[in-house]
């Protein structure tokens, strides 16, 4: 299962093994993430693509231990964090709000969210929230923290940062807010940044600017990034590696080039067919037929078989496809390749 072993020359930062997350609800137990494994290498960007409800946000929230109380992480799941000094920490074993977890949150793994509007408290200044973050993770005075805050705002391209630092989030535009959010996160100097659909709620032009900024800062700070999106087009611009998720499972994994140029899984293929492209102008886009099954009625066998045009009856709906390598870096879960 583990691709990381084949890439030993890369320095592994985060390893997720067989992560299973379920939610207790009135209607029963919903399995949101069903045994996914992936790893993130230092300085690399992993893109996770999937429709809403595919479990991509839940898996990253599990890494940060930000899941609601109704969520249960399976006992056999493992999330291993490798510190820069060689220490390894098993995140699933940590106490939720404990000291060790708080050290990781922000200081080692930063997170930015989809809605820059509501990621900031409406009654505290942006500077207040950056300074709070800096003071929580760095041994600096308040004055120094404020200087770091102004400096970070400047770095993320906010003009007039010494004024902006005392403003409230509602005084900034959507794009500026997301820049400020990035500034908050980077001010704590994390080695991994989780970006949960950071550009989804922004205009397309702003989206491009933010992506550009993230790419630039990633290099400058030498961070690894987990970039979550439902947009394969965005993934192509930022990710080194891509994992395609559907109904809580990773169906296909590979480098960004492989996924975009040689998609193997029928699901990835149909996702790509649904993207408008300049070289295919005038042609109809194909949507994937059917609906995502309700998480309460997970189909047996391959989760995608209910909507798959190439499904092999008697196989896909009864057995679970195993991991099949396509290349050194490319794997797929599909009976078409077994």
């Amino acid at each position: 299962m583990d691709i990381g072993t084949e890439q030993i020359d890369w320095d592994t930062l985060l390893e997720v093994q067989d992560l299973k997350v379920s939610f207790k609800t009135d209607e029963g137990i919903i399995l949101a993430v069903n045994g996914i494994s992936f790893s993130v290498q230092r300085g690399q960007t992993l893109g996770i693509v999937g429709e809403s409800g595919s479990g991509k946000s839940v898996s990253t929230k599990a890494i940060m231990q930000l899941l609601p109380r109704t969520a249960v992480v399976d006992k056999n799941s493992s999330i291993t964090w490798h510190r820069e000094n060689g220490e390894t920490v098993e995140i699933t074993q940590l106490k939720k709000g404990g000291r060790e977890m708080r050290r990781i949150r922000g200081g080692e793994i930063g997170m930015i969210f989809q809605e820059p509007m509501s990621s900031f408290s409406p009654v505290h200044t942006i500077g207040n929230q950056i300074i709070e973050a800096v003071l929580a993770h760095r041994q600096v005075s308040k004055q120094e923290a404020r200087e770091i805050a102004i400096d970070m705002l400047d770095k993320v391209g906010i003009s007039n940062p010494s004024v902006r630092v005392d403003q409230y989030s509602f005084e900034l535009s959507g794009g500026m807010r997301q820049r400020a959010m990035i500034a908050v996160t980077l001010s704590m100097n994390p080695s991994l940044l989780i970006a949960d659909e950071p550009t989804t709620s922004l205009d397309v032009t702003i989206q491009a600017q933010i992506l550009e900024l993230m790419n630039q800062l990633r290099e400058e700070f030498n961070m690894a990034v987990i970039f979550i999106t439902h947009n394969l087009g965005v993934i192509a611009q930022v990710a080194d590696e891509v994992a395609v998720m559907y109904l809580g499972q990773i169906l296909e994994r590979g480098t960004a080039k492989e996924i975009i140029n040689q998609p193997q899984h029928p699901y990835t293929q149909s996702l790509l067919k649904a993207i408008p492209r300049l070289d295919h102008l005038g042609k109809r886009l194909t949507a994937i037929g059917g609906d995502i099954p309700s998480p309460l009625e997970r189909p047996g066998g391959c989760p995608f078989h209910t909507r798959c045009e190439q499904a092999i009856s008697g196989v896909c709906d009864t057995q679970i496809p195993t991991l099949t390598p396509i290349s050194n870096t490319h794997t797929v879960h599909c009976f078409l390749y077994e």
Binding site: L66, G97, R105, G106, G107, G110, S118, Q129, V184
Partner: peptide, 21 residues
């Protein structure tokens, strides 16, 4: 609200998250 999770993701102690925000 998201800003509560955002504060937690910054590594702020739980009681401070609750009372400050």
């Amino acid at each position: 609200q998201l800003y509560v999770d955002a504060a937690r993701a910054r590594g702020i102690p739980e009681w401070k998250v609750i009372f400050k925000y």
